[in-house]
Amino acid sequence: MNNLLYFDAGLGMMIAQGAIATVAGFVLFYKKIITILQGWLGIRKAAKENSFDSNYNKDTEIK
């Protein structure tokens, strides 16, 4: 398993992912708070017409 990597993934890249994930966690939390606040204020973002999801008929979220 996982032994057929045919390019250099970069050890530094993999170590850095922990830090990136921490930053991403903060970004997602911040966005969530903003969305909740906007919801309270009645500000709703219009759904994008040309989003990635509009290109596929079904929901793209894998359950």
């Binding site: 970069g10 050890l11 850095a16 830090a19 990136i20 930053v23 903060f26 970004v27």
Partner: peptide, 24 residues
């Protein structure tokens, strides 16, 4: 921008290095 910083600025520090040559 935190996303740009983490994916480009942080990762670029290790890009170009061949990590497998570091004895790990």
């Amino acid at each position: 921008n935190p996303t740009v910083y983490s994916h480009i600025y942080t990762l670029s520090k290790s890009d170009g290095e061949n990590d497998t040559n570091h004895g790990i």
